[in-house]
Design a protein around this nucleic acid. Structure first.
Lengths: 200, 200
DNA sequence: CGGCGTGGTTTCGTATGCAAGATGGCGGCA
DNA sequence: TGCCGCCATCTTGCATACGAAACCACGCCG
């Protein structure tokens, strides 16, 4: 089996929560699971470390990175910085096809899955490779930690509203509006987190 | 020889410009150079790929990433986003020892070397692991591309002024000022780049 | 009874061999 | 003469083997 594939499967298993934060990742076990030797597994683990999903300690092995409250806020505050910029950059460049896809995702059944695609389309439309690199390296997290958002109806509604407003902003090629809406969208998520998970 | 060491040596060779952009990185040759086998070299190359310093194409090997004008501007615009935030976060947290080190670096002989340490201290003082990850993954570049700054006296003076002003802002624990100065510092660099290397 | 050292076991880190894919140059054919 | 395809060679990707470091548990000594 190919190594890039091992990387993707591992990433998915971690994001999906099948491999839980703190869980040890023994190379031999993973190799058996994927039907390969340890070599591709090691390479995948190193790449996922750069992606912030696993911690690799020399001579001690790899564990799924643990996420605490501070981590989560740190991550979302970074998103609150990067994604509004991405939205502003995307506004004048994004293609009509992408805008239609964004609109389609607003109507999707599973908003939780659609949300990921929605944000990714915008990030890619921004046309800033470095911004994408920064996001990839710093904003990966198991989906469980985001699921809290989708259990609250008000938050779901607000999120959907922001997405629709973003589509409108892109249609109008309004960079300022897109940036502002995205900022509100992420800061709103942070505020919601703060409510759900106060610091004390 | 240890693998993390190979990674560091390779990184340094690329940043230093010894391995030039576009140059092919054959695993066997690098292994001999470092006195190891290809295994640690492969792992180092994968890590450097995540860091944006090399491109690895499956079955075709690794090359030092090439940087063009657009890349450079993209990178500096990302820095213009991340570093002011880092400065703002650092202001209330940074220790007196770090402030003294920053002040010391303003007096250093080799401003070009001191500059790197200066910015790194601030990034680390920000206390945002994710922000650090984002910077590591997206702002690496051979030093040659920055050397242009240090050949212009006005730019050197302005840079030094910003650094001193940052030290003052940190001493006063003034987050807003630190953020503004840092933003000016990076945007000034972009403006200088624009002068030196106009788009047409 | 508790802390420390020690041996066996597990797991990692590196080297090496081999097979598959890419590269480059030569010869044939139009 | 110019272009295409094929074969020799090089390079990568993966598996496997071996040495080294960490882990664990037992027993010894204080």
């Amino acid at each position: 089996m190919a190594a890039p594939r091992v990387r993707d499967l591992l990433e998915e298993a971690i994001l999906e929560g099948e491999l839980k934060p703190g869980e040890r990742l023994r190379a031999e076990a993973l190799a058996q699971r994927f039907g390969t030797s340890r070599t591709p597994v090691r390479e995948a683990l190193l790449q996922l470390e750069a992606q912030g999903l696993v911690d690799v300690e020399p001579n001690r092995g790899a564990v799924v990175r643990t996420f605490d409250r501070d981590d989560l806020f740190d991550l979302y505050q970074l998103r609150a910085l990067l994604e509004p910029r991405a939205a502003a950059l995307a506004a004048p460049r994004i293609g009509d096809g992408d805008i239609e896809r964004l609109a389609g995702l607003c109507e999707a059944e599973d908003q939780m899955v659609a949300n990921e695609a929605f944000h990714r389309i915008i990030l890619e439309a921004a046309g800033s490779p470095r911004l994408l690199d920064a996001m990839r390296a710093a904003t990966g997290i198991p989906r469980t930690f985001r699921s809290v958002f989708w259990h609250d109806e008000r938050q779901r509604d607000e999120s959907l509203m922001c997405h629709r407003r973003l589509v409108a902003a892109f249609t109008a090629r309004d960079a300022q509006l897109a940036e502002a809406v995205m900022r509100m969208h992420i800061l709103g998520a942070i505020a919601f987190l703060e409510e759900q998970w106060p610091s004390h």
